[in-house]
Design a protein around this nucleic acid. Structure first.
Lengths: 173, 173
DNA sequence: GGTTGACCCCGTAGTGGCTTCAGGGTTTCC
DNA sequence: GGAAACCCTGAAGCCACTACGGGGTCAACC
């Protein structure tokens, strides 16, 4: 099985397959006489597994660990739970902030229904007002002490990040 | 106002402030005799605006365009609408796929309640089965024709991406 | 046998939005 | 006067790819 077939069979792009190999997720396949990669059924299986986990938005490092568990069935699977829990926590945190985000954007969009000069644009006025610290959905208090902005980092950090100083104690206004 | 004060006032990290300057979002400030950056109220305002837009998860390129509209109040604001609409569409598409994701992860997690050997781990079994093409929440059909996996690219592409061949017609099994 | 086109190889660089690092200088406080 | 806090710059690292450049291989067709 050549790389193109493998790619078609799993729905993973050829470049991505080579990338997984380089990153150590997919073992190096045998080579044909001409240097082409020759994949086995085991590769197909493993790549499909990776693909599925990626569809679950897991980081490659976590997938590597799952593959490792899979390769060593004797080990305790407690860490699998932890791993899935962490992923679930990440997804839920993201989901929560994205709901807030959607509400804000929808409200923002409602401020401007028809074309007009930018000067009177409700959207820009709202954004500027919010930036000034006036009330808005994600930025309630005009000075200090409010819940403040949703932290942009929530998409990257959250759940298992080591503690860091907050960035949301907005004092402008 | 030095960079540290600006950073504290807006809740943006110092490095990020410099990064925004380098990317052209924030105009270069004046310098003190010792070379330190000296920011004005206008910078504070602009950075707060950027921060607010980033909290709305807008790409920096879009923010640059909003700032440009803001700087030219005479222009028509139709593009502001388009921009917010695109952002809203992106967020909604992401939300939808994240909801599906959460359901899958929760179902997966339910397969494994207590510690045991990896060999009997319901989570791994489910993942492997799914990768094999057997039924699972995101991968219903055992061969072809199902809705297939959620496309990982949905987080990057979606809404306004140019048409591309689908990657989800999984034929493994 | 020459050409076309599909397929494959490799290494490197680019994406976005930062973050970190290395290696310095300046200011402030005790 | 020495330590700590602050500031500077440029470059590299992060993630998970994606794209590019420049080449080799192979089967089919004229």
């Amino acid at each position: 099985m050549r790389i193109g077939e493998l790619a078609r069979a799993t729905g993973v792009e050829i470049e991505t397959v080579r990338y997984y190999e380089k990153s150590g997720l997919l073992p190096e396949p045998a080579r044909q006489a001409n240097g082409y990669r020759a994949y086995s059924a085991r590769h197909l299986e493993r790549l499909a597994f990776i693909r599925h986990c990626r569809a679950l938005d897991m980081p490659l490092a976590d997938i590597a660990r799952l593959l490792d568990f899979n390769d060593h069935p004797q080990s305790d699977c407690g860490d699998v739970n932890t791993l899935i829990d962490a992923q679930l926590a990440r997804v839920r945190a993201r989901l929560a902030s994205m709901h807030a985000l959607e509400a804000q954007l929808a409200a923002l969009r409602a401020r401007c229904r028809e074309p007009h000069a930018t000067q009177e644009c409700g959207i820009l006025h709202e954004l500027v007002a919010a930036a000034h610290g006036e009330a808005c959905a994600c930025h309630p208090a005009p000075g200090r002490g409010g819940a403040g902005h949703a932290d942009p980092r929530v998409f990257a950090a959250d759940a298992e990040a080591p503690e860091r100083p907050g960035r949301c104690d907005n004092q402008a206004g």
